[in-house]
Design a protein around this nucleic acid. Structure first.
Lengths: 152, 152
DNA sequence: CTCATAAAGTGGCATATGCCACTAAATGGA
DNA sequence: TCCATTTAGTGGCATATGCCACTTTATGAG
């Protein structure tokens, strides 16, 4: 009960991650603002771009994101004409995604700004440090939390 | 244009951070589910708990969160009777926040689950590694991105 | 004391994300 | 061939977060 000695939330891996995400998100968003895209949208356009007309599921998987969340996030981009979807000819359950010409132009524009943000970030924390952090985060995203005990 | 050689979004510090946050968030949320709280809510209740009837601004600052976002996030917790607010007697612009008795009970319940998640996480990535990650994320949240060039 | 300005929140609007219940389409038997 | 099951998305609902325009209080000149 002596809350004077209670540890801060600095001990929670999840809370720290969210907090850092808010901070960095604000920074990248600020730099990307002139393009009219949020950092999340730039990242999503890029992910679509580097794929070969990826399916919704493939994108969601790559981004470790819920499929329905991806669908929601895609809506404003489709509305604004940056992205379009089409049913896979071979399997009509599957919906594929691609950038429109406008989307490609917008992505180029956003990438220029992204490089600025990325560079400024790495100038502050150090290229090495940044790479190490990304590697750690990559590992994190790949973890498999299932099966609590799983002994034997 | 040869997208075959385009680097994955693995290079974007921000994207990696968000991705890891989604992953870890799902894990902590899963473990906390029996309490009915999301990990963000548990973290917020805890932050309020360790403070001395903190002001909205103080909480937002500690969590590196927008003040209005905090206000929004607090609503369901107030609605569910876990948190209550009251005007500071000395400065009526200031609103202070505290847990209700119910909120304290719920926090205890959630903390038990949180420890399980935290422990399982550290068993997987290693206590050392987790601490290092948190430290890095803490530094990140403390960065000051203002003044781009700032030479001379 | 009076008013311009700063400080602290609120509300509205928009995106980010998740879960769940459903629908549509493909698949694997019987 | 026909149906139970699985796969891929959609829509609705709820929380997480931000920005911006205001409203309410304090404060600090004058």
């Amino acid at each position: 009960m002596t809350q004077a000695t209670l540890p801060g939330l600095t001990l929670c891996n999840n809370a720290m991650l969210r907090r850092a995400t808010r901070k960095l998100g604000q920074f990248y968003d600020d730099v990307l603002a002139p393009s009219g895209l949020k950092a999340t949208q730039q990242g999503l356009l890029y992910q679509i771009h580097i794929g070969d007309e990826p399916t919704m599921g493939a994108i969601a998987g790559a981004l470790v994101m819920d499929l329905s969340a991806l669908g929601h996030t895609l809506k404003p981009l489709i509305r604004d004409g940056y992205v379009e979807t089409f049913a896979d000819p071979g399997d009509r359950r599957i919906k594929r995604v691609r950038l429109t010409p406008q989307g490609l132009i917008k992505l180029d524009e956003a990438m220029k700004l992204w490089r600025v943000a990325q560079q400024r970030f790495e100038d502050m924390v150090g290229k090495e440090q940044a790479a190490k952090l990304r590697a750690a985060l990559d590992d994190l995203a790949a973890l498999d939390f299932d099966l609590p005990p799983a002994a034997t």
